Simulated scan of single mutants.
Amino acid sequence: MSGSIGYLLHWRADYSRLRYTPMPTPADIELALHEHLDHSGLHFGAFDFALDAGGQWRFLEFTDLLSDCS
């Protein structure tokens, strides 16, 4: 779908346009993630974020091991 408008409709529609870079988590976000896990009674969860054009962290989704991921 490279070069099409599909990527405008869904951010994962054109993987060739995406970049993935591990980054340190800002302290305030890390604290909020731990609070969410504690509140939910969980020990692990996968949190997905994206950075917007201004460098702000944007929450995308959360997956816990109790979810049916099959």
Rank of each mutant, 00 (worst) to 15 (best):
T21S: 11
R19M: 08
W11T: 13
L18A: 07
R19P: 00
G45V: 02
H43F: 05
A46E: 06
T21E: 10
P22K: 05
L37M: 07
F47G: 06
D38A: 14
T21K: 11
L37K: 00
L37R: 02
A13D: 11
A46R: 11
A46T: 11
E35Y: 02
G45I: 02
A13H: 09
L31S: 15
A13N: 14
R17M: 13
P22C: 02
D14P: 07
H39F: 13
G45P: 03
A46D: 07
Y15P: 12
I29C: 03
E30H: 09
H39A: 15
S40M: 09
H43T: 09
P24F: 01
H36D: 12
F44D: 03
D28C: 05
L18I: 08
F44V: 00
P22W: 03
F44A: 06
D14S: 15
H43L: 10
I29K: 04
P24E: 08
P22I: 04
H36N: 10
P22E: 01
T25F: 01
P24N: 08
T25R: 02
R12H: 13
G45C: 03
F47E: 05
P24R: 07
A27T: 10
R19H: 09
H43Y: 05
L31T: 14
L37E: 05
D28A: 14
H34Y: 09
D48F: 03
M23V: 12
I29N: 00
F47K: 02
P24Q: 09
S16M: 11
S16V: 14
